[in-house]
Write a protein that binds this DNA or RNA. Structure first.
Lengths: 250, 250
DNA sequence: ACCTGAACACCGTTCAAGT
DNA sequence: ACCTGAACACCGTTCAAGT
């Protein structure tokens, strides 16, 4: 218990040694909470030091004492989103595909709860405690599926990327200022449904069936398809390991 | 030939009627090309009116005569990226899955040729000529696959979202300023490979096999898995239509 | 030690002014 | 008609100054 749980030193809370007589009003955790509060309340480009400072009742530049720059704050917020996704997630079971779906859904939901943050976070690596835990969980599911290590690593990456890419994409749409977002959505109800059939015959044929771009069912279907494909490959991997048990054709 | 090829009026080039004696130095197309030139040359936050103006040898605000605001320029750039993806794309064949893969690869490549633009464009709807054409092509592949209209529309959306989401995600990473990007990449070679195995056992087991986050093979594998799943569903859809031809079990 | 104020180098956007 | 210049309300970040 003498060693910290998080091994990377640059993410530890306050390496500042507290002197008696100093009572800090701010904290990393307080700033993180203020940032989420602001990002949910305000639209458009909500995540500014000015807004976070106002939310804290402090000067915007006071934040620099706790985060080196805005990017470090962003990575902390990303890790907090991972924590939110993991909080209350059920323990792993034998049904690795269902476990992956559960983790995927929770991650997607956590991202969409904070679209202003999430739109910039999908491609980033938080390299912090909760992200480590999430990676470990997803890799665990792939190993439970029966993939050998190299494949478990590959399929971990491709599954996580699917979740993060979709979550960031849908968060980007949700984070648009309302007028811009409405105009984008409207184009699928107007322009895309009134295109001339002679120029765009296939589009015209299915125009009445186009799902909304902001339908969460799009993400669900994407994950379902990927899990279908992974189940096939997992079955193949297991039958390769124990040929007596697998039923392969050709 | 009297009607314009693009049916939506708000995207038409210059609805300004030219008076004699006026010789515009700028144009929509010229601004678009300058924007791409700037976005490829400069890193970080390259896509500013100041930089585009400098590239054109014109005042930054001169652009406002050709694009209402930065968002309209972004949508024009997105459509230009779609045009790039379609340029030289082979005609549709009977092998709809290979056609989809080809379109996906070209779209991904076009996005990654312009990461500074692409990082903001994935979730947007350009609602312009080349996007219409692309949607029509992908829907066409789904109909060739044998999906009925509602399913063709659903699978069009989920396939396009996969491509756009991955392309935007990888573009976001590529668009980071070099130091930030390097730090993110390095964390997969350092932090993630030195985590304590007792706390993260599954991660530790596969740590040596983790693919790089910027490996384009991640996108390829994601698309491959989705096409696997779509092939299965297409076979099922066809056997539902012509039960004599399909070989279903159960 | 902790926070504030002022300053700097940027942004997008508007609008009056030049030609 | 087309472009420029000045101005406005913002950004993130640095640094000296307050307490």
């Amino acid at each position: 218990m003498s060693t910290p749980t998080t091994p990377s030193t640059d993410v530890a809370e306050p390496r500042r040694r507290r002197k008696p007589g100093t009572k800090p009003r701010l904290s990393r955790q307080g700033i993180i909470e203020a940032a989420f509060a602001v990002s949910e309340r305000d639209g458009a480009q909500a995540l500014t030091f000015q807004a976070i400072g106002a939310q804290l009742g402090a000067h915007p530049t006071a934040i620099y004492r706790y985060f080196r720059d805005k990017d470090e704050l962003l990575l902390a917020l990303l890790d907090a989103i991972h924590a939110e996704a993991l909080a209350g997630a059920p323990e792993p079971t034998d049904d690795w595909a269902a476990d992956l779906a559960e983790l995927g859904r929770r991650t997607y939901a956590a991202f969409l709860r904070h679209p202003q943050v999430a739109q910039f976070a999908g491609a980033r690596t938080a390299r912090r405690e909760n992200e480590f835990r999430k990676v470990d969980r997803v890799v665990g599911c792939m190993r439970t599926a029966g993939f050998e290590d190299a494949d478990a690593a590959r399929y971990y990456r491709v599954f996580s990327d699917l979740i993060l890419a979709h979550a960031a994409l849908d968060a980007s749409l949700a984070a648009l200022d309302p007028a811009t977002r409405a105009a984008d959505l409207r184009s699928w109800d107007v322009e895309y449904r009134t295109l001339p059939a002679d120029l765009f015959p296939d589009l015209a044929a299915v125009a009445d069936h186009l799902p909304r771009v902001d339908d969460p069912g799009n993400f669900e279907l994407a994950m379902e398809l990927m899990l279908d494909a992974l189940r096939m490959r997992a079955a193949a991997a297991r039958s390769r390991r124990r040929p007596d048990d697998g039923r392969k054709r050709t």
